[in-house]
Computed example of a mutant assay.
Amino acid sequence: MNLTHRPRRLRRDGIRGLVSEVDLDARDLVAPVFVDATATERVPIESMPGQERVPVDEAADRVAELRETGVEAVLVFGIPESKDDRGTRAWAEGGVVQEAVRRITAETDAYVITDVCLCEYTSHGHCGVLEPDAAGDPTLTVRNDETLELLAKTAVSHAEAGADMVAPSSMTDGMVGAIREGLDDAGFADVPIMSYAAKYESAFYGPFRDAADGAPAFGDRRHYQMDPANAREALREVELDAEQGADVLMVKPALAYLDVVSAVRREFDHPVAAYNVSGEYAMLHAAADKGWLDREAAAAESLLAMKRAGADLIVTYFAETLADRL
């Protein structure tokens, strides 16, 4: 048999790497860092093996450890010392993220991105101000426009502390525009916004809510995070954020939404981010602990799939583990 086309010719050592269509590099990865204002020592996160909450005074040390592996960027989340119904510690000058960012930027050369949301700071655990009913009890309706002002204040406080980029994650309508206006008015026109532009109401967030102490005290977030059934809606959401000035467009989660990552890549010329979320991380760890798969190989393949789908950068808890290998 005369086979004219033999794809195996290009799968041999020596040529295989030269014709590889997608490369994964440590510089593509963003490592989440959890800073806990209530902690006096590092606290392992049981549902996320290898991850931990760190005290504020160890935030820079933790980031320095990540930098040694080749990771260049971090995404900072905060667990505050106290919470209230409006999440006022989110924008406090002496808040946990603000203090951590000052230390990280003073002591490391990492690129520092901050999560901008209220769920970790509100006593009810929802991503904004709740609408009270006639009896004065909160309902599951988040007051969208009132929340925008608080998100903008939070973003500005992060920029004042030295954040290189802010990343609003609340899926509040108009959040990018409000934050862009707030940053510009405060003299931070050069601080970019990485928007969680298509963030789904997902079952894969469970371990993160343990890590960040951000689980809703009641109800869920389906009224403001996206329905997992919807892909066309994601493009509408992303378009709105792009029009409002988002510099980077994120899809979250990643693995179960690679079709959305790919669609965003085709339709928009902005950098695209994918968030390899806590549940995706935890399930690979659990399977590897059973001996069912190779943890690092499966993690690397997963991240490569996100790059192949069109992600330019990936937020992942595997950043530290894989950076040296990459």
Rank of each mutant, 00 (worst) to 15 (best):
D84I: 10
L293Y: 04
E107M: 10
D227R: 11
L3N: 13
L66Y: 03
F318W: 08
A73H: 11
A319C: 04
A234I: 11
R12K: 12
D210R: 09
Y224E: 00
S157P: 12
A155C: 14
V74G: 06
A167L: 02
M194G: 04
L18G: 14
P49E: 00
D241V: 03
E267Q: 10
A100G: 06
A287M: 11
E320P: 02
F268Q: 08
S262R: 08
A242C: 09
E93A: 15
A159C: 12
T316E: 01
F34C: 01
V116R: 04
M226R: 06
L293S: 05
S195G: 04
A135M: 09
E233K: 03
E146C: 04
L3A: 15
E239G: 13
D36S: 09
A110E: 00
K307E: 02
I193K: 04
V76W: 03
R103A: 15
H126F: 01
G78A: 11
D241N: 12
A90W: 10
L258C: 13
R11V: 09
N230S: 15
Y111W: 13
A234P: 05
R221S: 01
L313D: 04
G14H: 09
I314W: 02
D190S: 12
L322S: 01
S195R: 12
V191N: 03
M306S: 10
C127Y: 02
